[in-house]
Design a protein around this nucleic acid. Structure first.
Lengths: 134, 134
DNA sequence: ATGTGTGCAAAGCTTTTGCATCATC
DNA sequence: GATGATGCAAAAGCTTTGCACACAT
């Protein structure tokens, strides 16, 4: 009978993995992370659940970086910095486009802007430290 | 001898196609566009040249939207709006992060920001017109 | 019973790449 | 000849999907 508590334990594990990290992982990262603890986990399941999280607002896509989609469980408005050197995706906790600004912009452009994604490119704090001035 | 003026005519055609449109095309769009005029054009060539244009600064990537990378021959700082309804990528000619602001931000975060990509999401002017208030 | 979640493997799509060929110099 | 560009097809890589089975209600 010990099989019974399988009520989406894996789904919870995927969401937790996403919530407990700040690396903005890819599906593959989550899979590798959980595989040891859930040996029969399938990559398809990770993809399916990540997609579902995005649809239900539990997570958001950071976009495709280096050919792979990155996810973020922090859905509060903030930006990201993608490091040219190490590829890291780090948070920039600042809201550059509050609703009122989006509305102003929408009026100016005769469109309906509903969200903004801000992505910086450069060197992350770590790599910035280790790289001599250019 | 009529073969002689083949000096990268295709490369020029690819760049021109990119420059003469505002749709921020994908590799496949460029390929389809040029194929009638250049029946022996290969998709690989389009990919190779688009990549080269990005490396040499003649073009820039708008990012991966709907699974395909979109390109832009306009490399002046500006933003984009991706339409949730028709998928169009339209220009927003405004520079939201001038160099000085990037430098300020870099200091605050102890990093080195070298560029910013701003992408809005919502309804483009066309779809906004045709869609009743929500 | 019905619906949902999953593993597995196959398929799908976009993009890259190896190799032979052709053009230019 | 040497270099660079291309066509073609194969390969690679990421993501989705069909199907059968297990689990939950």
């Amino acid at each position: 009978m010990e099989k019974r508590e399988n009520f989406s334990r894996k789904r919870m594990a995927i969401l937790s993995a996403l919530q407990e990290t700040t690396v903005h992982p890819t599906a593959d990262w989550v899979y590798s992370q959980l595989k040891p603890k859930y040996p029969d986990l399938s990559l398809g399941t990770v993809y399916r659940n990540l997609k579902k999280f995005c649809e239900t607002g539990k997570a958001a896509s950071v976009g495709v970086i280096g050919g792979q989609e990155h996810f973020d469980a922090n859905t509060t408005p903030h930006a990201h910095l993608v490091c040219d050197s190490c590829g890291a995706v780090v948070d920039v906790f600042q809201e550059f486009f509050p609703q009122e600004e989006l509305q102003t912009l929408s009026q100016d452009l005769a469109c309906r802007i509903q969200g903004a994604q801000v992505t910086f490119r450069g060197l992350c704090p770590n790599c910035s430290k280790e790289t001599p001035q250019s």
